[in-house]
Amino acid sequence: MPAPLPVRSDVNPVFLLAPARSCSTVAVAMLSQHPRIYGFPELLLFTAPTLGEVLHGGGARSRLPPWWIENQRSGLVRTVAQLHHGGQDDAATGQALAWLERHAHWPSTRLLDHLLDLVHPDVGLEKSPDTVADPQALQRCLEACPDAGYLHLTRHPLTTMRSMREHWGGMRAGHDQESLSARCAAAWYRSHTAIVTALARVPEERRLRVRAEDLLGRPATELPRILGWLGLEWTDAVLDRMRATQNWPFAGRGPSQNLYGGDWKFHRDPRLRALPDPGPVGFDESWGIGENSRRQLVRLAASLGYERT
């Protein structure tokens, strides 16, 4: 058996910041295959001040349907089950949920500290798109850990918005497609603008931007860049292992086939796939987005490394 790779990361934990439908679940699954990174499913810990509110949909999530909130908290339940009981079967997840309810009075950041202690000395990696959807949640994230690193994951606006429209269509059945498209465009724009603004206050050595298209399509190039930023070593064997996203402990839907904690498509089929080249950024009139908004989207996308039409 090869000797374990040393831990010398100066950024711990790491928060991956990205809006919904940005391939953040597969990104965490990939990075988690490094032997010194522990990737959590979506914990949602910054969405509300207390653990009880996180469990039951407090804060900005109070507008979501109850079934959506229950699915969302899968990540938190799975994490506690895995770390406390070594598995995610019905008995372990039941005990985990009971433990979480007993600690509902905890500040949500206290649970984060507890989980980071359990995975120490590995680097804890967390992502929750809800964090960047709410200014208060993003502020809690920035204040949580003074030595944290921030990985800003981007995805081409057109493919992100198409995925948002497909994913949210069932929840927003009362909206026509043009209205839904405009909401998706606004979500992409607001989230990335908030991330860029927030990270401008973070020292440069503790932040890194990565395009999902590059990470999924060229992992042999992008993974060493990320690991170098983290101060973690790697070998060719480690890079090969990191492509096996299906081996993440939180890939799939658990023994019950009813657990999530991230992108439902990934949990149903957790293999790594490259993203197709989306081409230049441009919007035709069928999107129902006004000219001024289109200009703003294209300008922001260009600043994130995407080609204009």
Results as ranks from 00 to 15, higher is better:
288 G>S: 07
267 H>C: 14
152 H>Y: 06
218 R>S: 14
184 C>S: 12
169 G>F: 13
188 W>Q: 10
236 D>P: 07
236 D>S: 11
291 E>C: 10
161 M>N: 02
25 T>A: 04
197 T>H: 10
56 H>C: 14
300 L>G: 04
18 A>T: 09
91 A>C: 09
292 N>F: 11
195 I>N: 09
42 E>H: 04
125 L>Y: 06
58 G>T: 15
283 F>H: 02
272 L>H: 03
106 W>C: 02
294 R>A: 01
124 G>K: 04
151 L>D: 01
216 L>A: 04
102 R>G: 00
142 L>R: 11
95 Q>T: 08
308 R>F: 09
25 T>Q: 03
215 L>K: 05
210 V>P: 03
159 T>D: 15
239 L>F: 09
258 N>L: 14
178 E>K: 15
60 A>Q: 13
133 A>R: 08
162 R>T: 09
196 V>F: 11
61 R>H: 11
199 L>Q: 09
111 L>W: 08
65 P>C: 07
244 A>G: 07
304 L>R: 04
206 R>D: 06
70 E>K: 13
298 V>F: 10
33 Q>I: 00
125 L>I: 08
152 H>R: 08
231 G>D: 03
165 R>L: 12
154 T>M: 03
135 P>Q: 05
132 V>T: 03
223 L>W: 07
244 A>L: 13
34 H>I: 06
235 T>C: 03
121 P>H: 06
134 D>V: 08
237 A>W: 05
97 L>G: 05
114 H>I: 09
80 V>T: 00
226 I>R: 03
151 L>E: 01
254 G>P: 10
121 P>T: 05
293 S>L: 12
229 W>E: 04
66 P>F: 07
221 T>R: 13
236 D>Y: 03
290 G>W: 01
123 V>Q: 02
14 V>W: 05
147 D>K: 05
74 S>L: 07
127 K>D: 12
293 S>K: 12
153 L>S: 00
85 H>G: 01
281 V>I: 06
10 D>P: 04
102 R>H: 07
23 C>T: 13
258 N>A: 15
53 E>H: 10
283 F>L: 15
73 R>S: 00
43 L>E: 06
194 A>V: 12
26 V>G: 05
98 A>S: 14
273 R>I: 08
256 S>Y: 02
161 M>H: 05
299 R>H: 15
124 G>Y: 02
110 R>S: 14
62 S>A: 15
185 A>E: 04
177 Q>D: 15
22 S>Y: 07
279 G>F: 08
282 G>V: 14
5 L>A: 02
308 R>H: 11
6 P>W: 04
304 L>M: 10
49 P>M: 08
214 D>H: 06
142 L>H: 02
168 W>V: 11
134 D>G: 07
251 A>I: 00
307 E>Q: 10
103 H>D: 06
107 P>Y: 06
23 C>M: 13
265 K>Q: 14
24 S>I: 03
66 P>S: 13
149 G>I: 01
237 A>C: 07
15 F>L: 06
54 V>C: 05
132 V>G: 00
1 M>E: 13
